[in-house]
Simulated assay, not measured.
Amino acid sequence: MNFRKQLSAIFVVSFLVLVLMVTGCSNPAPNQNDSEPKNQPAAEDSWDRIKQEGKFVVGLDDAFAPFGFRNDKNELVGFDIDLGEALAERLGVEIEWQPAEWSGVVASLKTGKFDAIWSGMSITPEREAEVNFTTPYIGSAQVIVVLTDNNDIKGKEDLAGKVVGTQLGSTGEVACNKLEGLKDLKTYDIYTEALNDLKTGRLNAVVTDDVTARYYFQQQPGTFKILDDILSYEPMGIAVRKEDTTLLEVLNQEIESMIEDGTYKTVSETWFGEDMSQFLDD
């Protein structure tokens, strides 16, 4: 009986081995081309879709005054908002503003959450590696802000051993990371939180762009001051995906037209009291 069981087991195993060998032999040899990348469909250019749908979706930080922020009625207002609305009207489309977390705004653009980023965004080599920018529509500098009565901090060298704040994911954070000897660098979702902490003494200084800083100075006159040290000069542009070349061309053309016909000047004087295009490089 045991012998019969052993014989049966040997037969079953031999049969399975034979089946596997036959199956393996019947499979076609792998195609050498399978390992090669397949042709991908042509990248979409969003401008055709925007024209068809009649809607231009734009990502922004909606707490970044004076570029885009909420007023007392929770309405979205600002320099970028007025300029964007004017541009959309010229193109014959509706603009839809979509608030986004700034630290992930580039990733959201690349995954198609919106068509562009228009939010006082500084043009940097790191960002240019991931997205394309329009020609600059406004320029700014990263500066150091302290309380008006602070006479201990006169320049960036005096920030050693100090607590400094800036916005998370901003070029202000990049500038802060180059400062030596900071006691601590605190990052915030919005600049107003950093300035509030500066005002209450939780921070010794805040690094932000001078355009934003001067706007807040108007809201709280006599509270803050800007030091003479400029950490970096950074023109700002509208960001689009790398493949959206036609959209980029259209935006560049309209920005140039708005500067030439005075539309830009009218919007700029509303928010800054002067025509900011005069500070752009030719």
Rank of each mutant, 00 (worst) to 15 (best):
I123F: 05
T134L: 10
K156F: 01
Q142R: 15
S140W: 06
Q142M: 13
K154H: 12
D149I: 07
P136C: 13
Q142W: 12
R127Y: 07
D149S: 13
V146Q: 05
N132S: 03
E130P: 05
T134I: 10
V146A: 06
M121K: 08
N132I: 00
N150Q: 10
D158L: 10
P136T: 11
I144F: 10
K156S: 02
Y137V: 12
V146P: 01
F133D: 00
G139V: 13
K156H: 04
Q142I: 15
K156T: 04
G155W: 02
P136F: 13
G139H: 07
E130V: 00
N150I: 12
S140G: 12
G155T: 09
A141V: 13
S122V: 10
I138Y: 09
V143N: 01
D152W: 04
T124N: 06
E126I: 09
D152K: 14
T134K: 06
M121I: 08
A129I: 00
P125S: 08
E128A: 05
K156Q: 04
Q142E: 15
G155H: 08
K154M: 12
V145Q: 06
A129E: 03
S140M: 11
G120H: 05
S122P: 14
T148R: 13
N150V: 14
T148F: 13
P125K: 05
K154A: 14
V143M: 03
N150D: 12
D152F: 06
T134F: 07
D149M: 07
G120D: 03
V145H: 01
T148N: 15
E128M: 03
N132G: 01
L147V: 14
I138F: 11
E157K: 13
P125Y: 06
V145G: 02
I144Q: 08
